[in-house]
Amino acid sequence: MNTTEVSLRVANVTKRFDDFTAVGDLSFDVCAGRVFGFLGPNGAGKTTTIRMIVGITAPDEGRIELFGQPMTAALQDRIGYLPEERGLYKKMKIADQLRYFAALKDLTGKEADRRIDFWLERMKLAEWKNKKTTDLSKGMSQKIQFVATVLHDPDLLILDEPFSGLDPVNVEFLIEVVAELKARHKTIIFSTHLMETAERLCDDIILINKSRRVIGGTLREVKESFGKNLIALRATGAEWVLEDRALVADVDARADEKILVLAEGADSQVLLKKLVDNGARVTRFEQIEPSLNDIFIEKVGGDNA
């Protein structure tokens, strides 16, 4: 990673509420033009961290730097934040609310109107411009909220559970828009607990649990460092071979196949040979990498069960 391209640096940040530590000594960098997955179970400290990044609250300890500068109110205009808990003014016209949210990001006048038209068009909501929130469906308001987030063309986008409440078609649509923003060298922080989506979108991730970092890095690094050799096996016969703890550490039986966790230092070739030698009929034997979901459950599941 090129350090000059770091758009957000969180360094040793701690936030406490009375005796409760919401975020403990958290550090990570987010680079420009990449999608950064900020993952963790509910209550892990994600929202608290995001609130510190967007300048709603200040950290008790540590530093937050945005585009190489310490966080200030002026830098807030370069962030677009879509909170998980979000809403719109109920009795206000869509265009009026968007104009207000733009003005709060210091974007006013004709330029604001031009961009509102552009984004409503892009979101296929142009005909709703002069309608009120109460006339909109949940998915539509969601897309309006997204427009409010990107209207002022922020360099850093923070999307907290952006897909909740959207139908699959709109999820795909939004993913496409996010990809466009990424191509324009925007930095995107994407917070979710949907690991499938995160795995699809993110270049880098950090997983936090109970206020602390659990694992982080590029998606590849994380998967490699997880250090588990997984094998998808579909076979009949010689089941006793899998009982050999020197070869197989764990077996997860799925509907029509088994996911094997190879024992420390075991060779998959040895296992395959042993199965075949003992008369097993193997139809699938594939070395697979762990999914983010597996990592999430492994790292977090035990504590939060």
């Binding site: 979000r86 109920k90 990001k105």
Partner: peptide, 17 residues
């Protein structure tokens, strides 16, 4: 109350003091 109830406050606070 409206801004609190609808969670607009979160967006407002991330935009202005």
């Amino acid at each position: 109350v409206e801004e609190k109830e609808t969670r607009i406050a979160e967006i407002l606070f991330s935009s202005a003091r």
